[in-house]
Computed example of a mutant assay.
Amino acid sequence: MTAPLNERGARIQLLAMDVDGVLTDGSLYFAASGDELKAFSILDGQGLRLIQKQGLITAFITGRTSPLTEARARNLDIGYLIQGRTDKLTALRELSERTSIPLEAIAYVGDDLPDLAAIETAGVGISVPNGCAAVRASADWCTTTPGGSGAIREVCEWLLTCRGVLDQLVDGYRAP
């Protein structure tokens, strides 16, 4: 990670992310009843809680509308849930206005073409390695961990490192 990128990371106040392909592996599972199923990584959840404790705001911006995404957002105390929005850049700009946080202080994580403009416009645009080629190429950074397997945890730990607090937080979990 380059120093200028880490400096930009230290200024991030809000982490916004897509859901399917970022918080999940991008697969959609349907039960015989027609009910949708999704798998979320517990590692991502812990990472989001850690950055929230440091005062960062979190947001999900997703093109689909899913009660499972709503339940996950509620479970993790996600500050903003925006569903059913395929124009991610417009949603990101609206979120910026609503929170009075400039786009330069927002990191956005995505994996597919609807995320492209948001990734290119955010203060730090991030892709996951299972993202499409155009998104990976346009991102400021691509995680090493795939979406659905802890990619958001990797982003959260990077943000905490940029703020200089990760080691201290980890030490808080060590035996006395």
Rank of each mutant, 00 (worst) to 15 (best):
K38Q: 07
A3W: 01
L48W: 06
A117L: 14
R49E: 08
E97D: 13
I12K: 00
R85Y: 03
A32Y: 02
V109R: 03
L48K: 04
L43R: 15
L5T: 01
E70D: 12
M17V: 05
F40D: 09
G9L: 14
K53L: 09
I42Q: 12
S27D: 11
D77M: 11
D77L: 15
S41W: 09
R85C: 10
R64Y: 05
R98F: 04
V22M: 07
P102K: 01
L116D: 06
Q83N: 09
P67R: 09
S100V: 07
G47Y: 02
V22K: 05
V135Q: 06
F60S: 12
V128M: 10
P67C: 04
S100R: 12
T62S: 15
L50P: 01
E36C: 11
A134W: 10
F30Q: 08
I126P: 03
L14N: 05
K88D: 03
S96Y: 00
A139E: 06
G45M: 13
R93V: 14
Q46K: 05
D18N: 13
L116Y: 12
A91H: 01
A139G: 08
V135L: 14
V19G: 02
Q46W: 14
L103H: 07
Q52L: 12
S41A: 15
E94Y: 01
E36I: 09
T69D: 06
I82F: 02
R11H: 01
L43T: 05
A122K: 02
G110K: 06
L5Q: 00
G34T: 10
L116C: 11
P129R: 12
F40S: 11
D140Q: 09
R64Q: 10
T144W: 08
V124S: 04
L68P: 03
S27P: 00
N130S: 11
V22S: 09
A31Y: 12
R64K: 12
L92T: 04
A137L: 09
S33Y: 07
I57P: 00
P114L: 02
F40M: 10
A117K: 13
L56Q: 07
R136W: 07
R64F: 05
C132P: 03
A31P: 02
R11T: 00
A32M: 02
Q54F: 01
G84A: 03
N75H: 15
A59G: 13
Q52K: 15
I57W: 08
N130G: 11
E104T: 13
L43V: 04
A122Y: 04
L5A: 03
Q13I: 00
Y29D: 07
A118D: 03
T86R: 14
E97N: 13
L43F: 10
R8A: 14
R93L: 11
F40L: 10
G45Q: 12
A32P: 06
P67Q: 07
R8W: 00
A16T: 06
G47Q: 02
G9A: 13
T58G: 15
L28P: 05
A105N: 15
E7N: 00
